[in-house]
Amino acid sequence: MNLINRFLDRMQKIGAATLHSFRRLGRGSVFLLEVISSCASLFVRPLLVVKQLYSVGVQTLIIIVVAGLFVGMVMALQSYYALVDFGAEDSVGVMVALSLLRELGPVVTALLFAGRAGSALTAEIGLMKATEQLSGMEMMAVNPMQRVVAPRFMAGVISMPLLATIFSAVGVIGAYMVAVELLGLDSGAFWSQPQNKVDLHLDLYNGIIKSVVFGVVATWIAVFEGYDCIPTSEGLGQATTRTVVHSSLAILFLDFVLTALMFTK
């Protein structure tokens, strides 16, 4: 009897957890629709978005530039050692450029974005909820969806592709520094191979589409976790952690789906 009861308890827990996550997913979807419909109001007050672009985009820029530079440099170094055995070291440029544009640019940027900007968004909105600022706005007949959530969401969606493009560009420059200046590759070969092999539509545009999708998902998760958090210091901490974990997993999963859709025929 005891064993059966224990088994049933376990099953009940799994069922409850499943239901809970579905409920959250449903709430999150409704929330996303609300956010998107609130975005229309931003055309009246574009300054709200500019302010958020500063805290979401500009303040994330430094970490993106530094990370991009080092990722590009490491990639150049590693691919050089792998390719030099085949006498194909001229392909360092194209290898780095393709990896950055297709995968590393959007994905690494999105992961850093979730860690830097996403967690900050969750904490900020969650704290506004905990200190009754959101309630206060509602009582002032101001919709916090329009004034607080939508500008942050919009800023995230705009920032991500910009950040990812900057990441890739800085990465290519870093690779150039290592490959040409340090390892003595021919600079003409470094640039000409990518120019032949990297396709504007297939590689560059698809990479940007990826980063827009990641931007929507990461910002959505961040603002939802903040808006939906339990307004205590503990709940806020959990929500911030969830933002980073969930958006990282979502980004990696979506990257697989998008790659499969875009680059396989």
Binding site: V50, L101, V170, Q195
Partner: peptide
């Protein structure tokens, strides 16, 4: 600063398009 940020993003795009891709 936001203006510079957006300009940097667009500049990065053109740099990639011109010197790395087959545009």
């Amino acid at each position: 600063l936001v203006g510079l940020f957006v300009a940097a993003g667009i500049a990065a795009f053109f740099m990639l398009a011109m010197s790395v891709s087959n545009m």
